[in-house]
Amino acid sequence: MAIPTANLERERLLKLAEEYREKGYEVFFHPNLEDLPDFLKTYRPDMIVRRGEENVVIEVKSRSSLDSSSNQYLGNLAQAIERHPGWRFELVMTNPEDTTYSPKAEGSLQEHEIESHLQVVRQFTTQHPELALLYSWSLVEATLRLIAQKEELSLERFDPRYLVNQLATEGVISKSEYQLLMNSLPLRNSIAHGFKTIQITQNSVYELIELTEQFLRTLHTDDEAD
């Protein structure tokens, strides 16, 4: 018997709350207006967690619960949060398609291939920013897998959110790099699952391209150091 989407989302939310509490965060389920800062008064986030000066706004969704209206809401929410230091947005999918593949089986892109593809992305960023952002994300994700491999990290799975979180937790990527990736992930998800978004700009694509190039340079630097 299929589990209703609302139940899946609630179960995922409860699990996330437990994980954040174990890390020392204060958790607010469906926070009241008085628990929200002024810039979030018009939103109703699923959960907010706080620890020190770090504030995380969390939304849990499944593909079946996403539509054009919720997609626009999430995009606006992410944009509002991005403008405020100390705050970040986290969109968690309960049943992402990306958790089922194996990079080893598929043959993950290598450094020279990533560099070649980056040149292609730059060529159509101006006319096709949505396609360019999706393409750019695939390249930064491939690069992150190479970094994880070089750092000999043990990864349980390879979905984007888990990969980024693990590298940040291990201190392999910086806080600013983590933030840029997490801000881009909701946009990537929207495009990948066929939803419209008005949040994408050429600059958001160039940021991903430049970040990928930076990660690639890190790989080369490490090689030279060896």
Score class of each variant (00 low, 15 high):
Gln123Met: 12
Thr125Met: 10
Thr125Gln: 10
Thr126Pro: 01
Pro129Tyr: 07
Glu130Lys: 13
Leu133Trp: 07
Leu133Ser: 04
Tyr135Ile: 01
Ser136Gln: 06
Ser136Asn: 05
Trp137Asp: 08
Trp137Lys: 07
Ser138Glu: 12
Leu139Gln: 12
Val140Ala: 04
Val140Phe: 13
Val140Pro: 07
Glu141Phe: 06
Glu141Asn: 11
Ala142Val: 01
Thr143Leu: 06
Leu144Ser: 11
Arg145Pro: 09
Arg145Glu: 15
Leu146Val: 03
Leu146Ala: 04
Ile147Phe: 06
Ile147Gln: 10
Ala148Phe: 01
Ala148Asn: 03
Ala148Val: 00
Ala148Arg: 02
Gln149Arg: 15
Gln149Tyr: 14
Glu152His: 12
Leu153Ser: 03
Ser154Met: 13
Ser154Ile: 14
Leu155Val: 13
Phe158Arg: 08
Asp159Ser: 11
Pro160Gln: 09
Pro160Ile: 02
Tyr162Ser: 09
Tyr162Met: 08
Leu163Cys: 02
Leu163His: 05
Leu163Trp: 05
Val164Thr: 11
Asn165Arg: 15
Leu167Thr: 04
Leu167Tyr: 08
Ala168Gln: 14
Ala168Pro: 01
Ala168Lys: 15
Glu170Ile: 03
Glu170Ala: 15
Gly171Cys: 05
Ser174Gly: 09
Ser174Pro: 00
Lys175Ala: 12
Ser176Gly: 00
Gln179Asn: 09
Gln179Thr: 15
Met182Cys: 00
Met182Arg: 10
Asn183Ile: 00
Asn183Lys: 13
Ser184Met: 10
Leu185Ala: 04
Pro186Trp: 02
Pro186Gly: 03
Arg188Val: 02
Arg188Gln: 09
Asn189Leu: 15
Ser190Leu: 13
Ile191Gln: 04
Ile191Ala: 09
His193Met: 08
His193Phe: 06
His193Ala: 04
His193Cys: 00
Gly194Arg: 04
Thr197Asp: 02
Ile198Phe: 01
Ile200Gly: 06
Thr201Leu: 03
Thr201Tyr: 00
Thr201Arg: 06
Gln202His: 13
Gln202Phe: 03
Asn203Glu: 15
Asn203Cys: 03
Asn203Arg: 15
Ser204Trp: 01
Ser204Ala: 12
Ser204Phe: 03
Tyr206Phe: 12
Tyr206Arg: 11
Tyr206Trp: 12
Glu207Met: 09
Ile209Arg: 12
Glu210His: 10
Glu210Ser: 14
Glu210Leu: 12
Leu211Trp: 07
Glu213Arg: 12
Glu213Ser: 08
Phe215Ala: 05
Leu216Met: 14
Leu216Ile: 15
Arg217Asp: 13
His220Thr: 10
Asp222Cys: 00
Asp222Trp: 12
Asp222Phe: 07
Asp222Asn: 10
Asp222Met: 12
